[in-house]
Nucleic acid binder design. Sequence first.
DNA 1: GCCGTTTTCGGCCCGACTGTTTTCAGTCG
Length: 588
Amino acid sequence: MYNINKDLAKILKKTGAIYEFLDDRFRALAYQRAANIIEDLPDDIRNYILANKLHEIKGIGSGIASKIQEYVNTGKIQKYEELKKQVPEDFIELMGLPGFGPKTLRRIYEELGIKTKEELIKALEEGKVEKLSGFGPKKVENMLKGLQMYELSQRRILLWEALQISRYITNKLKKALKEIKDIETVGSVRRRKETIGDLDILVISEEKDRMKIMDYFTSLPEVVEILVKGPKKSSVIMKFDGKKRQVDLRIFNQEEWGAALQYFTGSKEHNVHLREIAKEKGLKINEYGVYKVDTGEKIAGETEESVYKAVGMDWIPPELREDRGEIEAALKHNLPKLVELKDIKGDMHIHSTWSDGVNSIKDIADFVKNNYRYEYIVITDHSKSQRVAHGLDEERIIREIEEIRTLNKMMGWDFIKIGTEVDILLDGSLDFPDEILAKLDWVVASVHSHFNRDNTDRILKAMENPYVNVIGHPTGRLIGIREPYPVDMDAVIKMAKETGTALEINAQPRRLDINDIWIKKAVEEGAMLVISTDSHNLSNFAYMELGVSQARRGWAEKKHILNTRSWKEIKDFVDKKRKKLGGVIQKI
DNA sequence: GCCGTTTTCGGCCCGACTGTTTTCAGTCG
């Protein structure tokens, strides 16, 4: 079933923007919140209606509920259609650009009669806007700059890229300046969101050293423009690989550090909710600390733990801070104990030179042995349908099995396991016969074709094969390039649980598939997960870190991730399915 | 428009910065 949540959220968001333009701030807020909530829902909104559970979702009251119902029934929301007429279409899009707040746009619309983006740019350039009272040359300049930055701000970069950049900057600062007592990247990087807009970096130093740190930061060779420079906060545009990014640096005192980390890590929704709760308890939270409202006394702030503790909560891991229930869980001291990178015992999706990988199996094994503390790796080269990837036919995979057996014997270990990434064909059958699959330790089954059709039945059928152990990159998305193919993930998760098939968290930076929302759903439903790098060369093994943070964003604990277990336990998982569905059990 | 073991009415997070002002509105994160 095609998921309508995204489209509905988009309309609600626009409705919120229109209300903001109409100066109905709180109604706007309500719509924006509802839009965020619906975007994050694991289930299709229609399922909530069917189960009569729409009213149980916090943040959706009777008004918005009836509009959702209307949208589901008719594909339209009458109120939205009417509201749209009161705001120039271009302005809805422009709202939120740097310098383009609702008040500003409203006055330009009312006092200059401007209705399109082109007219607006012309008026800005001709000095018409500058003449309005309360406007001036600086503001106009900033608005024009904001338009220029529009493209830039639209392009979010992948988490992996952002991590490299932020680590480069923080290492460089730390090494060069002994005045820096601590440094930490915050914002969406710290929350490990799959894509990143700006980079935010926090530093502890004494007040006398601040200008020196800012001087060094703003004169880094990658800096192409300084937006703001002060002792507490500086913003610059940096250029990496030809791509521009905004980087903010803020400096705090030791005793403010926890509050600052908490504040600038966000998310915005998490912080708003947190401060609402603080307020109910007579407390005020800002980036400097937690204060009693009546006396003004500061009661916390040096550590993040102290900030959360002051409002009666456990410390919340940054990956959970999206206001998806973590605040309620922290209040009840009921947060999950999230999986960690050190829990991972092996990588279960790797390509070698047998198909489209860059390295030989021997080189892969040596490299992983020397650089990771894994107990096993599984080589999973492509099957024959993947011609461009030199997929293996029956004869070649038999030879690959032999090579691995010989290698293990020679090295005196049992480190390398033999698997495949077998194609799920159009009709849901597999690209290898069962006789071949039965010889393997581990089978990844993936969809690599027909991305436009509904792939649910195909995947469900593949999961019914006793030899299929995990579905690779289940939704097929490529972040920023290709949307997920149509697939009913609810059904897939249910079938995964039923058949004893795992779902992959593919750690490739552009995949991160399945995403955090589906991971959370799988965890709740009791389906098993596997975090794999899908490595095609040696540097790819480092992506495991991304897969783990994605799992953490989906509330996954160690027990939900299959490759935190020993190989014996994994074999139990494999054998259990084979037994249940009538497959052949391998002896070791 | 949403929400409520103090509330079904009256709130709805908070501070810094900027550019425009003579004391503050709007924007931003």
